[in-house]
């Protein structure tokens, strides 16, 4: 007899996320307090609570390709309000790491480009370097005129350092970054 739809529980993705984030996704009962409090709900597609549903369904590709994980600011309002102690920001941290490791285009390439530009300056100098971050970010996203007027105001008010701060033991930071690359699963 044909069994109709071949439905099997898709636990592998769920278990991986729970293990890596330390968050009990399985406990989510969709009360949606997290989405109600999330400042970025208005732009997220899907909402943060729906992302958890998709994780339970094993929809790995849709989850990793969503813009939700890149629009999450990490404000932890969801974690403070969830009756089941689920901090979605920690789940999104893991999902972004997986999305980058997959090599596919990020759901919000601009956010990914910004994070990477910032970290590139930290790897180089040991401290972040705003002018460098902005330069790299503009190269990656080809957005040369965005915030130009604001940037000039910053320079006029001496708010933007035009030369980087460099730490003495910068070699230690380079080794930390090397280890970090090895540690990515």
């Amino acid at each position: 007899m044909a069994t109709g739809a071949n439905i099997a529980p898709a636990l592998a993705f769920l278990e991986e996320i729970e293990a890596r984030s330390g968050q009990p996704v399985s406990l989510c009962y969709q009360c949606k307090k997290c989405a109600g409090g999330c400042p970025m709900s208005f732009a997220m597609q899907p909402y943060n609570c729906d992302l958890l549903k998709m994780i339970k369904y094993g929809e790995k590709e849709a989850v990793l390709g969503s813009n939700t994980i890149w629009l999450c600011i990490g404000c932890r309002t969801c974690g403070a309000r969830c009756p089941n102690g689920i901090d979605i920001s920690k789940i999104n941290d893991v999902l972004r790491e997986m999305a980058l490791a997959s090599g596919k285009k990020a759901g919000e390439p601009r956010t990914a480009a910004f994070h990477q530009s910032f970290l590139a300056t930290v790897e180089q100098f040991g401290r972040s370097y705003e002018a460098g971050t902005i330069g790299l970010f503009k190269l990656k996203t080809a957005s040369f005129t965005q915030d130009l007027a604001l940037g000039l105001k910053f320079v006029a008010k001496n708010k933007l350092k035009l030369l980087p701060d460099r730490i003495k033991r910068a070699g230690e930071i380079k080794r930390i970054f090397r280890k970090a690359r090895e540690a990515v699963i």
Binding site: G74, E97, L100, T111, R127, S128, I176, A180, V184
Partner: peptide, 25 residues
Amino acid sequence: NDWNCCGASCAHATNHFLAVALPMR
């Protein structure tokens, strides 16, 4: 003395190792 960047949200947003190691130094 010789403090480094803590990695800010950019590290925890993309790499767990950096998110812990940079502040830990």
